[in-house]
């Protein structure tokens, strides 16, 4: 790691202003992504601004839904009764992620800012357009087994967010509250938070340099209450998803009234499947319906040499998750 300076911010403004004034600075909460990447010299920051003293805590039900302070840790949120009861997919996505240790450390705000596990991005010996724009993307003809098949570009095929939580948040229409150095807050639906790689894969989110994630709010819906996160991976635990699905259903009298569907580890960013949702609504909650709807999820997928399996795996994962939520 490069030798950075460290400050502990006491107030949000102090933190955001410090970040605004120093382009090389980064916020640190849990540090699980940041220090990992700094040790790899993938990221170098002259200053780390410790935000853990900021008051962005708490898990509480508000009129807009469940508000989770960005500094809450994955473990607490995953185990919280309000989360488990009202948003099982969120709880499951958290508890199926990483390890107990990392979940104790990692913050919710940091989690949604995780960066890709693409091996070319993580090793500075390789070219990588995301890390060093313009150098190329060896993944196109290399190890793309766990890279994206949706939303990619010729510049980058990384699953830019490799984690779990944001998949559930995207499915359930969560909203991020961001605060900048002027102390101004704005609300960004998480569906609009992530950017597709296009020709600028280094830009991953709409977060401005001086902005800090303050909270995540998840609206309470019937579909969220009956939701699930299903994760397929190479080993039974402590592994990134090959494919994951976050789904929620509102079923009345055997008919789907509302559906929320997102896929993880197949898109350049967590992938909300609006077409699948449309195809489900008004249909009987049967496996046949789910199967037909799942077919739509992967339309336009662009597989590479080693990741074509994701198409079938993703469909099956969706069908399984929907079936389990609907208990069919």
């Amino acid at each position: 790691m490069n030798n950075f300076s460290y400050i502990q911010a006491d107030k949000a403004k102090e933190a955001t202003a410090a970040k605004r004034d120093d382009k090389s600075a980064a916020f640190i909460a849990g540090g699980t992504t940041l220090l990992d990447l700094m040790k790899l010299n993938v990221e170098n920051h002259g200053q780390l601004i410790d935000v853990n003293m900021l008051p962005f805590r708490g898990i509480e039900m508000t009129k807009d839904g469940l508000r989770i302070g960005a500094l809450e840790r994955m473990s607490e949120v995953g185990a919280h009764p309000l989360v488990k009861e009202n948003f099982p997919a969120v709880s499951e996505s958290l508890l199926l992620a990483a390890s107990a240790q990392l979940r104790n450390m990692a913050s919710i705000g940091g989690n949604v800012l995780q960066r890709t596990r693409c091996g070319y991005f993580r090793d500075t010996a390789f070219p990588c357009n995301k890390r060093e724009p313009g150098t190329g993307c060896p993944a196109l003809e290399g190890d793309n087994r766990n890279l994206a098949i949706l939303g990619t570009s010729e510049t980058c095929i990384a699953t830019s967010y490799p984690g779990d939580l944001a998949v559930a948040l995207i499915a359930l229409d969560a909203v991020l509250t961001l605060e900048n150095a002027k102390g101004k807050q704005r609300q960004v639906p998480i569906t609009k938070f992530y950017l597709l790689p296009g020709t600028t894969p280094q830009r991953e989110t709409v977060l401005e340099a001086d902005e800090l994630i303050v909270a995540v709010t998840i609206p309470q819906t019937a579909a969220a209450r009956k939701s699930k996160y299903l994760k397929v991976r190479d080993r039974s635990s402590y592994a990134y998803a090959l494919v994951s699905a976050a789904v929620g259903l509102e079923v009345q009298g055997g008919t789907v009234r509302a559906a929320r569907v997102a896929l993880g580890a197949v898109g350049a960013q967590p992938w909300r499947c609006f077409e699948v949702e449309k195809a489900l609504v008004g249909q009987p909650a049967t496996e046949a319906t789910f199967r037909a709807a799942a077919e739509l999820a992967l339309r336009g997928a662009k597989p590479r040499e080693h990741n074509a399996y994701k198409i079938e795996m993703a469909k099956n994962t969706l069908v399984r998750a929907l079936s389990e939520v609907a208990s069919v």
Binding site: G31, T32, D36, K39, L48, A98, Q101
Partner: peptide, 27 residues
Amino acid sequence: CDHGQCGACTVLVDGRRVNSCLTLAVM
């Protein structure tokens, strides 16, 4: 591993298990 991928560095901080390799001493 020094990257939070193996757990060999696990210690308790305020009673919680964490990977000490991804924790700064100063913090």
